[in-house]
């Protein structure tokens, strides 16, 4: 614990202004379900908290027109149960309601969700410098490599970090080609959700491409009929209330039993929300059979680099994709 200041601005502009003014050690806070947790673990030590949760009307869910637009403060539970989202975009709804618990989903926002940090146990439990961790202490090394790595990533890893990008929602968004609207000291911009996340490379402590003081204001998902034939399939160590061992967000455009176009993104296995074009290519224009589905799943893991205890994620991940394809394809077109 260290003392920090706390303010509740009334508008996004005010929030961004307050951030710029506060300078070093400022953090936005929304639902607080990630940030407070990380503060208790001594990972985040903010000096100024800028609470965006009181901003009026910053939680709107818009489903008219040719896109879905969720303002950053919309609760996970609100988006998950929105009738249009639930009916036409099961992949989005499922990625939310298969995450965390109802209590957390009521508190947590869809904006804050994008910026949650890894569950790598060496990262989280390393207070007092017990475990070397390049994310926590740049240059200190990585305890997970050569350690208890059952939960670690097999895709997108580097020699400095193998930590999994933990969120489910970002995976579904990446599959659906979503983008975010960002407000910063220099005005607004927009970028694909996929571009928000960096690979660990040699700087695993730099996780996001947001500039300091930039705030996510909304998430925008282009509408597509593929939404109806979609699913978020999540395999975990218990039936509920756990992060993914492997997960697959899948949405299909079908012509009878032929796949015109598949969108596939993976969670639980990669250092960032992982789009799987290799798997999509296997399916394009093909009749969907169980064998083909598994072949697509295996293609997604062609470049996997497992460690000591997480090799099973390669096969499990492939089968997760195969099952997700079946579930999505079985969903009616109407």
């Amino acid at each position: 614990m260290q003392p920090f200041s706390y303010i509740r601005p009334a508008t996004p502009q005010e929030a961004v202004g307050a951030f710029a003014q506060a300078g070093e050690g400022a953090r936005f806070i929304a639902g607080g379900t990630t940030l407070y947790d990380l503060m208790k673990l001594n990972i985040e030590r903010p000096r100024h908290l800028i609470d965006v949760s009181a901003i009026e009307g910053f939680n709107r869910i818009e489903t008219d027109g040719d896109r879905l637009r969720f303002e950053a403060n919309a609760a996970m539970s609100a988006v998950a149960t929105d009738p249009v989202v639930a009916r036409d975009y099961p992949v989005l709804a499922e990625s939310l309601w298969k995450a965390a618990s109802q209590q957390l989903r009521n508190m947590a926002t869809v904006g804050g969700n994008l910026l949650q940090r890894t569950r790598c146990m060496y990262f989280r439990n390393g207070a007092g410098g017990i475990y070397p961790c390049n994310k926590r202490e740049p240059g200190s090394g990585c305890a997970a490599i050569g350690g208890l790595d059952r939960g670690q990533a097999v895709l997108g890893t580097s020699d400095t970090c193998t930590a999994v990008s933990p969120g489910d929602w970002p995976v579904a968004l990446v599959a659906m080609d979503a983008s975010i609207e960002v407000l910063g000291p220099n005005g607004t911009r927009s970028m694909p959700v996929a571009d928000l996340y960096r690979l660990p490379d040699t700087t695993p402590h730099v996780e996001f491409t947001l500039d300091p003081g930039e705030m996510i204001t909304a998430i925008v998902v282009p509408k597509t009929l593929a939404g109806r034939r979609s699913t978020y399939h999540k395999i975990r160590d218990r039936e509920s209330y756990a992060f993914a061992l492997t997960s697959a967000a899948v949405a299909l455009e079908m012509n009878d039993d032929r796949v015109e176009r598949a969108r596939i993104a993976l969670g639980g296995v990669a250092t960032r929300p992982w789009r799987a074009p290799e798997a999509e290519e296997v399916l394009a224009g093909q009749r969907l059979t169980p064998e083909l589905a598994l072949a697509a799943g295996r293609a997604a893991f062609r470049d996997a680099r497992p460690g000591r205890h997480n090799g099973f994620k390669v096969e499990l991940g492939a089968r997760t994709i195969a099952d997700a394809l079946r579930i999505a394809a079985d969903r009616s077109r109407t």
Binding site: G147, D237, S240
Partner: peptide, 28 residues
């Protein structure tokens, strides 16, 4: 479900909270 993980290089226990020490939930 349950197992406490020990990294022999460091001693102590690694999965020391109820998120990572997996006990059943109602759905199980």
């Amino acid at each position: 479900r349950e197992a406490t993980e020990i990294d022999p290089r460091y001693g102590g226990y690694l999965n020391v909270d109820l998120a990572d020490y997996v006990v059943p939930v109602n759905a199980d």
